[in-house]
């Protein structure tokens, strides 16, 4: 599949919905001067060294960079999975960095969706229970129509009662995508969502993520080191040594590769 080609027509149509009246894109999540230092003294490593970046509502952003550049750390800090050493994270109007664990947990549950590289699903729950997990943790009722749409679009209708061990890797990631989207979170974070998949399944999952942005106005932030995967995004943010190292709009695999080469990776 040639990435970026089949849905480019719809961009303009949906862009209207994503933009507020004044025409300025709204920010879904914003990092300001984020620093994250691991360890102390001589062994201290600054995984993030003053990163400030905005992610617009209804946008699909890929975070790229060489291994160890701080991609996962940035994502974890943005998603409230980890607390930065200094700096702020604003999710909508909410400042995350000051929140205690319980409040942060509730925000992850109610306002953020996740897709991880592997081990996304709980082995003892069925696919459907896994999809509904965040909602049920918050005692929220799922929107049945939305759930049906997701299940249909992701082709999971006949897999709902299966345990994760009975699903293929691609099916497992699609279940994870459904779970991330079902609660209509403000942001979906995906950390190397295709890292463990063959290229066909990977392309499927990336296609769904982009479709959720285009058709449903979802905001998606994805960490990846794969230029092909990054080319599904609207924008690529480059990291190197814990610092921002450039940006790229409407990326193509070749332009991404070029940019990466310039980083010296």
């Amino acid at each position: 599949m040639e990435p970026g080609s089949d849905m480019s027509l719809q961009t303009g149509e949906l862009a209207a919905g994503r933009l507020p009246q004044d025409g300025m894109p709204r920010t879904a999540i914003r990092a300001h001067e984020l620093r994250k230092v691991y360890g102390q003294g001589d062994t201290a490593v600054a995984a993030l060294d003053g990163v400030s970046v905005d992610f617009a509502v209804g946008n699909f952003t890929a975070i790229m960079g060489p291994s160890g550049s701080g991609k996962s750390t940035l994502m974890h800090c943005l998603a409230g999975l980890d607390t930065p050493t200094s700096g702020q994270v604003l999710l909508g109007e909410t400042e995350l960095t000051q929140l205690p664990d319980a409040a942060l947990t509730k925000i992850r549950r109610d306002r953020i969706g996740f897709v991880f590289q592997s081990f996304n699903l709980l082995p003892m729950l069925s696919a459907k229970d896994n999809i509904l997990l965040p909602l049920e943790l918050g005692s929220r009722k799922p929107d049945q129509q939305w759930l049906a749409t997701l299940v249909d679009v992701l082709g999971l209708a006949d897999r709902l009662t299966h345990r994760p061990s009975e699903l293929s890797g691609g099916q497992q990631q699609r279940v994870a995508v459904a779970r991330a989207l079902v609660g209509r979170p403000e942001v979906v974070f995906a950390d190397e969502p295709t890292g463990n998949l063959d290229s066909r399944s990977g392309a499927e999952v990336l296609g769904f993520l982009r479709r959720s942005v285009r058709e449903f106005g979802q905001t998606v932030v994805m960490v990846t080191h794969d230029p092909l995967a990054a080319s599904y995004a609207d924008r690529v943010v480059m990291l190197a040594d814990g610092k921002l190292a450039g940006e790229l709009y409407d990326p193509k695999p070749e332009t991404v590769l070029d940019a990466l080469r310039q980083l010296g990776a």
């Binding site: 947990t105 992850r108 997990l133």
Partner: peptide, 8 residues
């Protein structure tokens, strides 16, 4: 994973 999903 459960904690990430919002289990307090």
């Amino acid at each position: 994973l459960l904690r990430a999903m919002g289990l307090t």
